[in-house]
């Protein structure tokens, strides 16, 4: 598990809140990657895009369409926030696949903060937009009256379980993939099964590339779903 340990970059033992650690390094690289893709890549502003510019436009169009399709047109105001989340997660996940790197999104502290930010802002947004009517989200009008209270309890529980599953899904996926790769890599020390082990590491790595993207996609699309609930709480 030592690939997940947070270490200060410049020696020392104490980790204060401001200490530059490997978390800092890899988050800085994430920001640098985003900047490279979206500032250097789109510098040309060409009508006929260069290769890097069209990748940036592709990402923009992908998330833009997702927000519009899932959460509706009026959610496009929050598109920059959602795009920020998506880019941070996708680049952190991919950078975490570089050998010897540190996966910032495999830490529950990071994903919990992301999920809590989404949860709190969506809840606050819902109350600001609809006031007390936002609570109708938990009062399912489609169901017969006697079972509505039960449904309301279930809905409330599932509402508060959202940030937990939202954050643990991302962190768990990232952690599990890396742990599995490490377990297979550990078997490579035994000469007899090392070919199998190398093959398995390769296959897992490919799967992890896929999972990295899909988890970023899922995180973003769930954010869009929650945003839709806040904007249109009536089922």
């Amino acid at each position: 598990m030592d690939q997940f340990i947070v270490k200060p970059l410049f020696g020392g033992d104490a980790i204060h809140w401001y200490t530059p650690t490997n978390v800092t390094l890899w988050m800085a690289l994430t920001v640098a990657a985003v900047a490279l893709m979206f500032v250097a890549g789109t510098r040309g502003r060409a009508i006929v895009p260069s290769r890097s510019q069209s990748v940036a436009e592709l990402a923009y169009g992908f998330v833009h369409k997702m927000v519009e399709d899932v959460a509706g047109k009026d959610a496009l105001r929050y598109f920059p926030h959602i795009f920020t989340l998506f880019l941070f997660i996708v680049f952190a996940n991919f950078l975490g696949l570089v050998p010897m790197s540190f996966t910032t999104t495999s830490h529950i502290a990071v994903t919990a903060l992301l999920a809590l930010a989404v949860f709190l802002s969506v809840t606050i947004l819902g109350f600001v937009r609809h006031g007390v009517q936002f609570l109708e989200l938990f009062w399912v009008k489609a169901a017969p009256l006697p079972i509505r209270p039960i449904l309301a309890v279930i809905e409330v529980i599932s509402y508060f379980a959202r940030p937990i599953s939202h954050s643990i899904r991302l962190a768990g996926n990232m952690m599990a993939g890396h742990a599995v790769i490490k377990v297979f890599a550990g078997f490579a020390a035994l000469a007899a099964i090392s070919p199998f082990s190398v093959l398995a590491v390769t296959a897992m790595y490919g799967l992890e590339v896929l999972v990295s993207f899909i988890q970023a996609y899922v995180f973003t699309i769930l954010t869009c779903v929650y945003l839709k609930d806040a904007l249109h709480p009536h089922h």
Binding site: R169, G172, I221
Partner: peptide, 17 residues
């Protein structure tokens, strides 16, 4: 496809738990 991925995510989250 969006619904598909949401469904996968919900099903998979429990495995991750």
């Amino acid at each position: 496809t969006a619904t598909l991925f949401i469904g996968i995510a919900f099903a998979e989250a429990l495995g991750i738990f």
